[in-house]
C-alpha cells in the first residue's frame, strides 16, 4: 500500500463535504419529523412513517431514479428550482448531497425519535407550570434531553451518507471532482485493470470512517442514558 494519490484525496474530501452538508441540512428536518412522530397523532401518521423509512427498503437505484425524475433539470421540482432560484442538483455535488440526505434520513430520524419518546413528559409539564411557553419547553427541556439522541442520529446519518452509492450514482452519475465519492471511486477502480491497490486504500478508509461513526453513536447513546438519570 503506497501513498494516497491526489485523485483519491479528491474523492475522500468530496465524500466528506457531501456527507457533512447532507447531515447538517437534514438534521433540522429530522428533529421536526421525529418530534411529530413521537408526540403528535394525526391522520396519515403511519403513511408518513412508512415514507420516511422507504429509502431503507427501496432499491437505491429506484430512489436515485425518482430523485432524477423529481429534481432533474426537467423534473417538477428541479425545473422550478433551476429556473427561479438557480439551484441545480443534476450532475452536481449538491445532487449527491441531496441523494445522501434522503438515503440517510431514516437512520437520522430514528434515534432522535426514540430519545424524544424516552423523555418523561411530566418534566415538560413541570416546565409549563414554571411559566415556559410550549416552544420554550421544547428549547429548554425537550431538545437538551434529546440532544444525545440527536447527535447519535447525526453520526449514523453521516456514516450512511458517506457510504451511499446506488442512489447517488443513479441521480448524479460518477464525475471525478464533482460527484465521484469514495464509493463511486472504488466502483470505478475495481473495474480498472490495475486499480486494486487504490481501491484497497479507499476500502480501508471507508471501514475506518464507518467504524468510527458507529463507536461515536454508541458513546452518545450511553451519554443519553446517563443524562436522563440526572448524573
Amino acid at each position: 500500500m503506497s501513498e494516497i494519490t491526489p485523485a483519491e484525496w479528491t474523492a475522500i474530501l468530496l465524500s466528506l463535504r457531501v456527507a457533512i452538508i447532507a447531515t447538517l441540512v437534514a438534521t433540522p428536518f429530522g428533529i421536526a419529523l421525529a418530534w411529530l412522530l413521537a408526540r403528535r397523532d394525526f391522520w396519515g401518521k403511519s403513511v408518513l412513517d412508512a415514507v420516511v423509512h422507504l429509502p431503507l427498503v427501496l432499491p437505491p437505484v429506484v430512489t436515485g431514479y425518482l430523485l432524477l425524475l423529481t429534481f432533474g433539470k426537467r423534473g417538477l421540482v428541479g425545473g422550478f428550482l433551476a429556473d427561479y432560484l438557480g439551484i441545480v442538483f443534476a450532475f452536481r455535488w449538491t445532487g449527491a448531497a441531496l441523494a445522501c440526505g434522503v438515503m440517510s434520513f431514516p437512520l437520522l430520524v430514528r434515534p432522535i425519535r426514540l430519545s424524544i419518546e424516552a423523555i418523561d413528559r411530566r418534566l415538560e409539564q413541570a416546565a409549563e407550570t414554571l411559566g415556559a411557553a410550549p416552544w420554550k419547553v421544547f428549547a429548554t427541556v425537550t431538545l437538551p434531553l434529546a440532544l444525545p439522541g440527536v447527535l447519535a442520529g447525526m453520526v449514523l446519518g453521516f456514516a450512511k451518507a458517506i457510504g451511499e452509492f446506488g442512489a447517488t450514482i443513479t441521480f448524479v452519475s460518477n464525475i471525478p471532482g464533482e460527484t465521484q465519492t469514495i464509493s463511486s471511486a472504488i466502483y470505478s477502480l475495481i473495474q480498472t485493470p490495475d486499480g486494486d491497490a487504490a481501491a484497497g486504500r479507499l476500502v480501508i478508509i471507508s471501514i475506518v470512517l464507518a467504524l468510527g461513526a458507529l463507536i461515536a453513536a454508541e458513546w452518545f447513546a450511553r451519554r443519553a442514558t446517563a443524562r436522563l438519570h440526572g448524573n
Binding site: R122, L123, A127, T129, G131, A132, V141
Partner: peptide, 29 residues
C-alpha cells in the same frame, strides 16, 4: 394556558430537570 397562570406546582415526584444543576433548576422559572 398553564404557563400564563403564574402558579407554582410542587409535585409528589419533585420533577427537577435532570440536565440542569440545582442552581439552574432554581433559576428556571
Amino acid at each position: 394556558p398553564t404557563y400564563r397562570r403564574r402558579i407554582g406546582y410542587v409535585f409528589q415526584d419533585a420533577r427537577l430537570f435532570p440536565h440542569l444543576n440545582v442552581a439552574q433548576n432554581l433559576d428556571y422559572g
